[in-house]
Simulated scan of single mutants.
Amino acid sequence: MKTITIETGQNIIDIAEQEYGTLEAVYHVCNDNNLPYDALLYAGQKLVIREFGVDDILFINVAVLNEFKRKEKDGLPFLVNSRTPMAELPPAETVDLPSFYGAGAVGLNAEGILGLTQIFRQSQAADDLPFVADMERLFYATPSVFGHVAHAYQLGGYDARTSFDELMMNLIINGEVQPYYVLRLKHDTYLTEADNFKITFR
């Protein structure tokens, strides 16, 4: 999978055409990003896209993608843009979205993330969140408006950020699609108190 950034005016159909060359690929865009088919996108929103030759793709038109490749200028990708009205993402300082943490299977999906323990970070609080878990694969999910997680400090001060993969996942919060960064511990392990982390954001 690769990650793309939505430009102002783009919609789900634009992304299906741009990245897969066919409208039918709306199926991939929506299912891989936990989006309803009629979702409005945010300018700057991150979406995950399947990579040709790497991931399984049911719907793709290589001829159209090759034509888009021919239209690239100065190494910049060709963008499909219908100039659609966008959903407005509230500024980070006004957002009080929940973060999620806990343990689960390696393939934990959006519904599973929503079932983890919630914690809120008030906008006036410091840019850190304490998390505690005592099971196998550890997950942290934080709203993308907080920024990427820069550090994951264990007790004692060791930064274990490189022990986590980072995924992009869209969650439905209060009926609205919200992009989240999901940290997933790379290896199954039995976590003890020494494996609790305190995360900070960029």
Results as ranks from 00 to 15, higher is better:
M1S: 07
T3H: 01
T8D: 05
G9V: 07
I12P: 00
I15K: 01
Q18L: 03
Q18M: 09
G21E: 00
G21I: 00
E24Q: 15
V26T: 09
H28Y: 01
H28E: 03
D32T: 02
D32L: 07
N33M: 02
N34V: 09
P36W: 02
A39W: 01
A39G: 02
L40F: 10
Y42I: 05
G44K: 02
K46W: 02
L47C: 00
L47H: 00
I49Y: 02
R50D: 03
R50T: 01
D55P: 04
D56W: 07
L58R: 15
L58M: 09
L58G: 06
F59Y: 15
I60T: 09
N61H: 12
N61C: 15
V62W: 07
V62F: 13
A63R: 13
A63C: 13
V64A: 12
L65S: 10
L65R: 04
N66L: 14
N66C: 14
E67L: 12
R70M: 12
E72M: 11
D74Q: 10
P77F: 02
F78M: 09
N81I: 00
S82W: 07
T84D: 04
E88L: 11
L89W: 05
L89V: 06
P90N: 09
A92F: 04
T94L: 13
D96Y: 11
L97P: 01
S99R: 05
Y101T: 12
G102A: 11
A103C: 15
V106M: 12
A110M: 07
A110T: 03
E111K: 12
G112L: 07
G115R: 11
T117G: 03
F120N: 07
R121C: 11
S123N: 11
S123E: 08
S123I: 10
S123G: 11
A125D: 15
D127H: 08
L129G: 08
P130A: 15
P130H: 13
V132F: 14
M135C: 09
L138K: 11
F139Q: 03
A141W: 02
T142C: 10
P143D: 04
S144P: 01
V145W: 04
H148N: 09
V149C: 11
V149D: 00
V149L: 02
Y153C: 01
G156F: 12
G156L: 10
Y158I: 14
D159N: 15
A160R: 11
A160N: 12
A160Y: 07
S163A: 15
F164T: 05
F164N: 08
D165M: 10
D165Q: 08
M168F: 04
M169W: 02
L171S: 06
I172R: 09
I173A: 05
N174I: 02
N174S: 11
E176I: 11
Q178W: 10
Y180S: 03
Y180M: 07
Y181T: 08
Y181S: 08
Y181M: 08
V182R: 04
V182S: 02
V182A: 06
L183H: 07
R184L: 13
K186S: 06
H187L: 14
D188A: 13
T189W: 12
Y190R: 10
L191C: 13
T192P: 07
T192C: 12
T192A: 14
E193W: 12
E193I: 14
N196W: 15
F197T: 14
K198P: 04
K198V: 15
K198F: 14
F201C: 06
F201L: 13
F201V: 10
R202P: 00
R202M: 06
